[in-house]
């Protein structure tokens, strides 16, 4: 299981990569492993829309379950990973790269303090049976 050190993680298994006042968001390796093969991705927000921390930005469906993807940070949606709709399996094969979901302009960087670093998140997933 992969937990890159340059990311911040939410207890609901989303990751955030921060570059200046911009953030890229996806779901963790642990999350894709738990969901297993993804068959559907749909963004539930549009470019330009504002989301508050905790609000849903996308829906995922695997052969096992459906799951909401919530943004752990507040911001304005800048970009949506359009190719994911046709190729949701990218989340399985490359969760931290081509499997990203949305990019946002952060409105409150202090929210980042509430997220976990990679070692804390790894401990968190191991408590839930991660490997």
């Amino acid at each position: 299981m992969n937990y890159p050190a340059d990311l911040k993680y939410a207890g609901t298994d989303e990751w955030v990569r921060v570059e200046g006042d911009r953030a890229t968001l996806g779901v963790s390796d642990f999350a894709q492993d738990q969901l297993s093969d993804l068959v559907f991705f749909e963004a539930t927000v549009r470019v330009g829309e504002r989301v508050a921390a905790g609000e849903q930005v996308a829906t995922l469906e695997s052969v096992k379950a459906a799951a909401d993807v919530n943004s752990p940070v507040s911001g304005e949606i800048l970009e949506i990973n359009q190719p994911l709709a046709a190729r949701p399996e990218l989340v399985n094969t490359d969760p931290y790269g081509s499997g990203w979901m949305v990019k946002l302009k952060l409105t409150d960087k202090s929210e980042l303090a509430a997220l976990m670093d990679n070692t804390a998140y790894q401990r968190n997933t191991e408590a839930r049976g991660g490997r």
């Binding site: 093969d37 068959v39 559907f40 469906e61 052969v63 399996e89």
Partner: peptide
């Protein structure tokens, strides 16, 4: 035998 559930869903 084992069906391809991913393809079936997609």
């Amino acid at each position: 035998g084992r069906l391809d559930e991913v393809q079936a869903a997609k």
